[in-house]
Design a protein around this nucleic acid. Structure first.
Lengths: 152, 152
DNA sequence: TTGTAATTAATGTATAAACATTTAATTTTG
DNA sequence: CAAAATTAAATGTTTATACATTAATTACAA
């Protein structure tokens, strides 16, 4: 379904407007799919994202600030997200000794187990996307990078 | 700045994962820019979107349900958004005579004035995007449509 | 050193989002 | 026609988001 049909708008002022709307719409679209995907596992997409960042550290600890820098949405509160994951016993945290303002966060085995479980299911999701073809996906990634660059 | 640098992730599992993350990130990116853009005018992006839908009706009324169908984010509550715009005296509404469950919403002159004022400024924003070039933008739009199609 | 600025994380708070539920009206069906 | 199902909009409620502010610690500069 083209963006025109999705939002029942027959024409757009110009290709720029269409791209902006299409990007927002497609972003929402994926977020909603992913949220629905995560729900049965009891975590939100944002929480999953933090878990993935921690998992990527290979057991090493990372500060809350570093998590923020790696997050998709810098505005959301990494501190509170870590809090949620801590309450679920998926991560642990301890005051950093070198800089006592900082808090080192690390993933617990339960967190790793959960993320791996979810990743298996996500692969099926990605398999669908791969229908697009490697070249098209590369092109899409490049255009997205260029798009952001054009604005900043 | 490439998506790798933006979220400080040196590599991705595969091109599909990268595209998903890039799309969410770019979507967030635009939403944040647009939100900041709207703020001085006292409305949110969602409210602006509803106003734009109403403006597109050329003065004709449209039901709350129809607004929902045309919205970028179907999950958000059109009823409450219309409420906000009503409180700002930018739109008006009246019970539909043919179907008294429905409520006809239409834009007021103040609403049209506001949206036109904002559109002028948005054009400057779009001018930046146009640096990408018409062909690239068309390709981006097509890839986005294909991307969603691959999932659904 | 010592006060000032900057940084890190946590917290406060108003608003919005995500759903579920409700109310009223219409449509369908037996 | 009357009961049941469906539809449209509004409302209730819990949680999350967007920011601002605070508190503690560290860095820096006079």
């Amino acid at each position: 379904m083209s963006i025109s049909d999705e939002i029942k708008q027959s024409s757009f002022k110009n290709e720029e407007t269409k791209a902006v709307i299409n990007l927002i719409f497609t972003g929402n679209f994926i977020v909603q799919r992913q949220q629905a995907f995560m729900k049965p596992f009891g975590i939100t997409m944002q929480q999953f994202n933090v878990l993935r960042i921690l998992e990527g550290q290979k057991g090493q600890a990372i500060s809350v600030l570093s998590i923020t820098e790696r997050m998709l949405d810098k505005m959301s509160n990494a501190s509170r997200l870590v809090d949620k994951l801590f309450a679920k016993k998926l991560v642990s945290r301890i005051q950093c000794e070198k800089d006592r303002r900082a808090v080192d966060v690390y993933i617990l085995p339960a967190g790793s187990a959960l993320i791996n479980q979810i990743e298996v299911h996500l692969d099926e999701f990605r398999k669908q996307i791969s229908q697009l073809g490697e070249e098209n996906l590369k092109q899409l990634n490049e255009l997205l990078d260029q798009f952001r660059a054009s604005i900043s």
